[in-house]
Design a protein around this nucleic acid. Sequence first.
DNA 1: ATGGCAGCGTCCCGCTGA
Length: 264
Amino acid sequence: MKIVTWNINGVRARIGNLLHWLQEANPDIVCLQEIKTQDEGFPRLEVEALGYHVETHGQKGFNGVAILSKLRFDEVNRGLPGDDSDDHARFIEGVFSTRQGALRVVSLYLPNGNPADDPVKFPYKLAWMERLERWARGRLDLEEPLVLAGDYNVIPEPIDARFPENWVNDALFQPATRQAFRRLENIGFTEAVRATTEAAGVYTFWDYQAGAWQKDNGIRIDHLLLSPEAADRLAATSIDKHVRAWEKPSDHVPVAVELALDAA
DNA sequence: ATGGCAGCGTCCCGCTGA
């Protein structure tokens, strides 16, 4: 079972890249972030034509997440519980049947939080991370394979940036941000890419500006966190870095995990 | 990043992103 997360930075602007990549990578489940459209604007017919079921949680202009799946959805939940006043579309959960039992997959787009001294944006990021932890603790009680996949907007460690010194004042690399991410790991989640490589120079995002891609000035901020039951079935991870060199690319690339699970 | 891209809606400028 191949599960992938990709911040696509506008699904309507990226539909050609998405269709090409789906055929090349042949994933079973895809978690998209920043679809930047309302649900009715998602190009679902083109994606369905490739054999995928589509569930979205969109909003006008920015944010928005989706899950594409070759497996039928048994259940879909939209929005991260814990704050009814939060109207950002950043969270969608799908439940699937496998031969080994239920599988839960979340596509999440964690708030950026910049500027780090902003009285609203940075606290919103930390509060969202606290809500995610609270929600995730509850899901761990189910003792099921669960994948929390998405754009976390978190650089976990200095090794996850080409120039970590450039990020010390950034919300993505603040001590409080990194601590909140470690808390998610410490309650029982395994970060899939770091579980499979200790290598430096592994990035998932390169800014459009200042020739960041050409200089390999990247950061690793797209992650897949695995519950114990999912981590026990972790077979491999991969990053489709070559997609960043395509025409009209997203600034993020797909990050994949292979789990030893079979569709029911 | 003293902001040099890119997508989107308010649509040829302003906002958001990281």
